[in-house]
Design a protein around this nucleic acid. Structure first.
Lengths: 225, 225
DNA sequence: CCGATCGTTCGGTCCCGGCCGAACTGTCCG
DNA sequence: CGGACAGTTCGGCCGGGACCGAACGATCGG
C-alpha cells in the first residue's frame, strides 16, 4: 500500500461520525471503556466494538485489559495533534446570530490532550504574551527570563532542559494560537491542582470554579464573561 | 452540524484515495488544472470534477479561473499541515526488507508545502542544530545569534520580525522533526535559487543537482548516499 | 464558423461499510 | 453455582457514494 493510500485509510477512520466521537472523547488523554465510548458515539455496543477493533488495528488507539473491562486511549500524542489539525481546518461553526447552542461549554474551556484550549486557553496565552512572560509567534514560542520568574512563583515552571517550551496549537474554535507543549501541560496541571478548574464528566469541557474565576482574574487579568 | 460531525466530514473528504491523491499532489503549493489532477488521482475527468467540487465546497481547495482552465490549489497552509499530520500518524511504510520500491525519491527529498522535507530536510535540520545555528526541540525552535550570521552569509535569513522562525514539522517518512516556518521556506527558496535542487514534474519530490550535492556537502556536511 | 480541448452534468451500476439485534464468551459478585 | 454485566461475533438490511460513459456548455485556435 502506498503512503497516500495509507494516509487515506487513516483519514477514512476519522471520517465516520461514530469514530470521530470516540476519538474526540479520548482527546483529553483519559482511558475509557468500550461501553462509555458506545455512549459517546451514540451507537450500539456491538457497532462500537467493530469501530474500536478497526481503530486499534490501525494503531490509533491503545487498549489495556483490566478484569472484564477494556480501557481505550489514544495510542500517541500524534493522534491528538492530528485530530486538532483536522478540527482547525473544519473551522468554527458559523454562529447562528444571537442564538446559543449546545457545546458552548466546550468553547469556553476544554482540554486539548494535555493542555488548556478554548477561550480560557487563548486568554491565558494572550495574558502571558502581553505581560512579556512568553514570546509567541505563529510558529513557535519561548519563555522569557522574566517569564521564568513568574512561572516559578505560580508553580508551573516546566522541567529544565530545552529553551523552547511552548508549541502554539491553533485553536479550532477561536482560530487563535494557545500554549501547548511542556509549558501548556504544566499550566493545566497547576490550575487543576489549585482547584481553579475541574473536569466535567464525559466531556473534554472543563468548568472554572469560583476560586478559579477569582484566581484567573487576579493572576492573569482574565475575566471570561 | 456539530463541531465533531464537521470534523468527520472533513476527514471523510481525505479518506477517499482519489481525493487523497489530489490533495497530496497540491501539497507543494502549486496550482494544477482539473485534468492534471484527474491524472494524479487515477480516475476519469468526470469523477474528478465531482471530487473537486466537493473539496472546494468544503474550502479545502481554492480555485481560480483562467480562460478555459481552472487552477486548483490548497485553500490555506492549514490544509497542508493537516495532511502532514495525518501522514505522520499513518507512519512510514514498513520497509520490505532490502527491497526497494517506488517512491524512494519522495523519501530522499521533497517539498512539504513551502519547505524541504524527507531525508534532505531532516539532514539540514540536524546539521544546523549540531552546528549550533538553531536550537530545535520537539515543540519549537529558535535561531541563535551565531545562526543569524551563518544564515545571512548563506543568503537565507528570513525577514526580520519575531524571534522564532522555525516550527518543527514531524516528517512522516523519517519520523524526525525538520525545519518549517519562515526559516524553512527561506532555506528552500535559497537552495532552489542556487540551483542545488530542482522540482520534478508532477511530483513533490525534488532532485539534488550535482552542484547541490557538492554544496550541501561543503556548506552543511550533508552527503545523502 | 469549426474542430479541438477543458470541464461539468446526468443517468445508471455496483459495492463498501455502517447499523442493529440476537446469540455467545468471559469476568465479577453474592 | 447462577445472575448480572462487559464485550465480541455473526447474519442481514440498507443507504451513500465512487465510478464510468455519453452528452452538453465554454473557450481557444485557425
Amino acid at each position: 500500500m502506498s503512503d497516500i493510500t495509507r494516509m487515506a485509510s487513516v483519514a477514512a477512520l476519522l471520517g465516520d461520525p461514530a469514530r470521530a466521537n470516540i476519538l474526540t472523547a479520548l482527546m483529553d488523554g483519559r482511558a475509557l471503556t468500550a461501553k462509555e465510548l458506545a455512549f459517546a458515539a451514540h451507537v450500539a455496543p456491538s457497532t462500537t466494538s467493530g469501530h474500536l477493533a478497526r481503530l486499534t488495528d490501525a494503531d490509533l488507539l491503545a487498549v489495556e485489559r483490566q478484569g472484564r473491562h477494556r480501557y481505550f486511549r489514544l495510542a500517541s500524542p500524534l493522534v491528538g495533534q492530528m485530530l486538532e489539525s483536522v478540527m482547525a481546518v473544519a473551522g468554527p461553526e458559523p454562529r447562528p446570530a444571537g442564538k446559543w447552542r449546545g457545546g458552548e461549554a466546550l468553547r469556553t474551556a476544554r482540554t486539548c490532550y494535555d493542555h488548556l484550549a478554548g477561550r480560557l486557553g487563548v486568554a491565558l496565552a494572550d495574558s502571558l504574551s502581553q505581560a512579556g512572560h512568553v514570546a509567541l509567534t505563529h510558529d513557535g514560542g519561548e519563555v522569557t527570563d522574566q517569564g521564568h520568574h513568574f512561572l516559578r512563583d505560580f508553580g508551573a515552571e516546566p522541567a529544565e532542559g530545552k529553551r523552547v517550551f511552548c508549541r502554539p496549537c491553533l485553536d479550532w474554535s477561536e482560530r487563535r494560537p494557545h500554549i501547548a507543549g511542556r509549558l501548556g501541560a504544566a499550566l493545566a496541571t497547576r490550575c487543576h491542582d489549585l482547584g481553579w478548574i475541574a473536569r466535567q464528566r464525559d466531556s473534554r469541557a472543563v468548568t472554572i470554579t469560583a476560586e478559579g474565576s477569582e484566581g484567573f482574574a487576579a493572576t492573569f487579568g482574565i475575566c471570561l464573561n
